[in-house]
Structures are given as C-alpha cells and as structure tokens.
Amino acid sequence: MTKSDLADRIEAEVILRPASGGAELPPIPTAENIRQFEAAPHVVDEISAKLRAMGFVVTTVSPFTISISGPRVLFERVFRCKLTSGGETSAPLVLPEEIAEHVEQVYIQTPPIYFNQV
C-alpha cells in the first residue's frame, strides 16, 4: 500500500443495534449495564460479512461495534456522502438497506489528542 493510499484510507466504527431493541436502554453505558447494549451474536457475523462484500476491510469486532476500513471513494459510494480531506462529513452517512436493520449508524473516526500537550 502506498503512502497516498494510506492517506486516502478512512477508518470507521459501525454501531450495531442492541438485541433488546434499544427502547429501554440506560442513558449511559457502564460496566454494570453494558450487556444490555449487546447485539445478537449472529448479527455481528452477518453484518461483518455484508460489509466485507461491500468491499470494506473488517478490522476488529466486539458485541457492539465493528471497525471497518476502506478507501474514501468506497465510503462515499456505499454511504452516499461527500467526505472532506480529513474524512469529515457534515451529514450522517446514509445506511444501505441491506445493513440498516441491524446497524444504528456508522461513524468515521479521527485521531485522538495525546495529553503531553495542551
């Protein structure tokens, strides 16, 4: 992969809908209530497979989220959006029909601040 390929790559987190349906979820996820936010086990595999079929690389999964990676053009095509050079978008991504039932939303990730500096 070249440097320009890397620079053009987008990282995102896919939030899965909880198996419980989400209507009565606590407002803040904590260690005590976190299991209520889990998606159904088959959903993680099913959505991961669909994302791969769309061309994304599935990098890590958990019971709540799927990390994906792919070129900017792929994100723009699949989620019908326009991304800035920093990977930002002013509007929420539009979920394709085949994953919308089990996916709450997809969020593009930005690097954190290292706290040696102000």
């Binding site: 996820p29 260690a31 005590e32 990390s67 969020y107 706290f115 040696n116």
Partner: peptide, 28 residues
C-alpha cells in the same frame, strides 16, 4: 455519536474486570 463506540468499549473492558486508566487532559 462519533465516540459512542469507544464509550461502549470502555464499559465492556471494565465489565470484563480490566482496570482502565485514562488521562484527565491538559486543559481538555
């Protein structure tokens, strides 16, 4: 919402018995 996934994972880690330590920030 962009940090929702990280919020869930932090809670999951502690629920699994992992001690999670984070910096408070430098004016952040």
């Amino acid at each position: 919402n962009t940090l929702r996934a990280l919020e869930l994972e932090v809670a999951r880690a502690v629920a699994r018995g992992i001690v999670v330590v984070f910096s408070a920030g430098n004016g952040h």
